[in-house]
């Protein structure tokens, strides 16, 4: 389908579309929250890992809130293809 040229700026990674800048932001956020939580955790295993896991979930939630999915989603009403 024809679309405006300047809107087409997403690339495909792992079967879905991403915007490069957003991807870099998401990676930076997740790495900081995950590795950061691991490093600041008390050095008493398994605490660092659990902190890290919580950091990963936190990073995921933050990036989900900041970044919009690159999908147009709509419900199809009857007979349109």
């Amino acid at each position: 389908m024809p679309q405006q040229r300047q809107e087409e700026e997403n690339i495909e990674v792992w079967e879905d579309l991403v915007h490069i800048k957003d991807l870099v932001i998401a990676i930076i956020i997740s790495t900081i929250t995950t590795l950061g939580a691991y490093i600041i955790a008390p050095n008493d295993p398994p605490k660092p890992l659990i902190f890290g896991l919580v950091g990963a979930v936190g990073g995921f939630i933050i990036s989900s809130l900041l970044i919009k999915p690159k999908r147009n989603f709509r419900y199809m009403d009857e007979e349109e293809e």
């Binding site: 991403v18 957003d22 991807l23 990676i27 997740s30």
Partner: peptide, 27 residues
């Protein structure tokens, strides 16, 4: 499906796996 397609960006998922790998590598 509607929820995932609308609200979960692919970037966030890639980001999380990247973060986990970096953490485990560091460990």
């Amino acid at each position: 499906c509607a929820f995932v397609f609308r609200f979960i960006p692919h970037e966030a998922m890639l980001g999380v796996f990247f973060g986990l790998v970096i953490m485990l590598a560091y460990m």
